[in-house]
């Protein structure tokens, strides 16, 4: 997958680039408006990550230009300006998602995966990973052809783990993914532990490989042996 990252903060740019290159994606970067505009005009991308506040211009104009080009690229706005009006305006212009900074790289990853899935297959695709088959449209999970009933949070967790397979996902990232901004003043780690425990139990009961590794103190890694 080819990703264009438009971000002026170089360290954040490096982190994102590194994270996605580990997955084998191609990440091109642009640090200002002019460069980004050039790249958008010249090349095609599967996904464009764009910051709103850029040197020499506004990221929202880039969204408009990409749309004018009738590009098929999915667009995710990553902005420190967590303002509702920007979000609504950005989505109106044709952006597909809006992720306020700061975010976890695993969250960005899962958003990109979901976006590509929606773009390429109108959401009707099934996700297959060895013996696991997921139908996102119905939110149903099959293991070795057997339907497994998961709770809503367990399903969200499984999808998140698969999007971030072979990556260590921190407990903070999981908590934010499951509860968003709302429940962040609680100690949610016990609940995460319980949900993960139940999810693993259900997977194992259906003779699924034990992919979930606990990284002590930090989080989990959904490790697929290659």
């Amino acid at each position: 997958m080819k990703i264009l990252l438009i971000e002026d903060e170089l360290e954040l740019q490096k982190s994102i680039q590194q994270y996605f290159e580990m997955e084998g994606h191609i990440v091109e970067v642009a640090s200002d408006y002019d460069r980004a505009e050039q790249k958008i005009a010249l090349y095609d991308y599967d996904c464009i990550l764009v910051d709103i506040t850029l040197p020499k211009g506004c990221g929202l104009d880039l969204v408009r230009k990409t749309k004018l080009k009738k590009s098929k690229a999915g667009i995710i706005i990553i902005s420190a300006r967590d303002s509702l009006s920007d979000k609504i305006y950005g989505l109106d212009l044709g952006a597909d998602d809006y992720l306020p900074k700061p975010f976890h790289l695993s969250e960005l990853n899962s958003r990109i995966k979901a976006l590509i899935r929606r773009k390429d297959f109108d959401g009707n695709l099934e996700i297959t990973l060895n013996e696991i088959r997921i139908l996102p449209a119905e939110r149903s999970v099959f293991i070795n052809g057997q339907n497994v009933i998961l709770t809503s949070k367990e399903y969200d967790l499984l999808l998140y783990f698969i999007a971030n397979k072979n990556r260590v996902v921190s407990k903070n990232a999981l908590a934010e993914h499951l509860w968003g901004d709302n429940a962040d003043r609680f100690d949610n780690f016990d609940f995460i532990y319980n949900h993960v425990k139940n999810l693993r139990k259900k997977l194992l009961e259906n003779k699924c490989c034990d992919y979930l590794q606990t990284i002590y103190g930090i989080g989990y890694n959904f490790k697929i042996h290659q």
């Binding site: 360290e11 954040l12 580990m22 976890h104």
Partner: peptide, 19 residues
Amino acid sequence: HEIQTPLAVIKSKIDLLIQ
């Protein structure tokens, strides 16, 4: 913006570090 951006850098570095 000014505060969130360095925080975003810290967060992303932690995410990379735990890999």
